[in-house]
C-alpha cells in the first residue's frame, strides 16, 4: 500500500481513535477521525480546549500511535518519529542556556549526529540559521539569550527552529496564543511568507477563528471529546492575503460559519 500517485495525500487519517491510559481511568481523546492533507496545503484545526487537537499533531509526528485506525504519511503508516516534521508551540520552549542562533541549529545538530557526522558542518548550519533568522526579522539578535528576547522574538526563534531542517510538515500548536494582538498579526505575516517561500505543508492549531481563516487553505472544526472532524471550510481568498481582508463580508461569513459549527456540540450534530 505504499505506491504513491500524484493524488496520494501527504497525510491521511483513516478512522483514527486514540485512547490515553487503560482501564476505567482511560480517556478516549479521538474517535472516528478522518482527515487528509495535500502536499503544500495550509490546514488549520479549531475546536474547544481538550478536544484532542494537540493529540492530532502528536499522531502526525509519530510521537504517539493510534489506538485504532491508521495514520499515513506518503502512504506509509507512521510508526515512529520520521524526522520530517518541524514543531512549534504556544510556549517557545527554547533552551535558555543557548543563544538564539544555537537554539535554531538544534534540529540540524540532532540530524547530523544521527548520521554520525560531526562538527564538520557546524559552520554551514550557522550560516543557514543566520539566514533564516534574518528572514523573520531577527538579524542582529543571533547571539542573544532567550531571556534577552521579547515574547514575539522568542516565538520567531521557535519558528526558525521548526523550519531550519526544511521539514515537509510544519506542525504549529497554538503558536501565537500567548502574544498580544499586534505581535500576533505581525507573525501571521511572517508565517504566511515562510509558507510561500518554503512550500511546506502546514497544520496550525488555533483558538482564533480569524487567524485560521486568514492563514489557511482549509479550516477543520473538531468536535468535543472524543475528537473528530465535524466541519471543513475551504478558504478561497488569493495569496498573499493582507490584514484588511479580515473585514470582507466573505471572510466574516466564513468565520461566522465556523463559529456556528463549534457551538454545535455532538448532540446537536445528530439532529
Amino acid at each position: 500500500m505504499s505506491t504513491e500517485t500524484p493524488s496520494t495525500p501527504l497525510v491521511n487519517f483513516d478512522n483514527v481513535a486514540l485512547r490515553y491510559g487503560t482501564g476505567t481511568e482511560s480517556i478516549l481523546a479521538l474517535e472516528g477521525l478522518n482527515l487528509s492533507i495535500r502536499t503544500g496545503e495550509f490546514v488549520a484545526v479549531v475546536g474547544m480546549s481538550g478536544c484532542g487537537k494537540s493529540s492530532l499533531l502528536k499522531l502526525m509526528s509519530g510521537l504517539v500511535r493510534p489506538t485504532a485506525g491508521s495514520v499515513t504519511i506518503h502512504g506509509q503508516e507512521v510508526t515512529k518519529p520520521l524526522g520530517i516534521v518541524g514543531m512549534a508551540f504556544q510556549n517557545p520552549s527554547l533552551m535558555p542556556w543557548r543563544r538564539a542562533l544555537e537554539n535554531v541549529i538544534l534540529p540540524l545538530e540532532i540530524k547530523s549526529e544521527q548520521r554520525r557526522l560531526h562538527s564538520g558542518d557546524a559552520r554551514e548550519h550557522k550560516e543557514k540559521a543566520r539566514e533564516l533568522l534574518s528572514k523573520v526579522g531577527l538579524a542582529g539578535f543571533e547571539d542573544k539569550y532567550p531571556k534577552e528576547l521579547s515574547g514575539g522574538m522568542k516565538q520567531r526563534v521557535s519558528l526558525c527552529r521548526a523550519l531550519i531542517h526544511q521539514p515537509e510538515l510544519l506542525l504549529l500548536d497554538e503558536p501565537f496564543g500567548a502574544l498580544d494582538a499586534f505581535t500576533r498579526e505581525e507573525l501571521w505575516g511572517v508565517l504566511q511568507r515562510l509558507h510561500r517561500e518554503t512550500g511546506c505543508t502546514v497544520v496550525l492549531i488555533t483558538h482564533d477563528l480569524t487567524e485560521s481563516v486568514y492563514l489557511a487553505d482549509t479550516v477543520h472544526v473538531m468536535s468535543p471529546r472524543p475528537g473528530h472532524l465535524v466541519y471543513g471550510a475551504e478558504v478561497p481568498f488569493e495569496r498573499p492575503r493582507n490584514l484588511d481582508d479580515r473585514f470582507n463580508v466573505a471572510f466574516t461569513q466564513i468565520v461566522a460559519d465556523l463559529r456556528h459549527h463549534i457551538a454545535k456540540g455532538p448532540e446537536a450534530e445528530a439532529v
Partner: peptide, 9 residues
C-alpha cells in the same frame, strides 16, 4: 522541548 527532540528522532 522533549517533543521537538523526539520528533526529530
Amino acid at each position: 522541548l522533549e517533543d521537538v527532540l523526539r520528533s526529530l528522532g
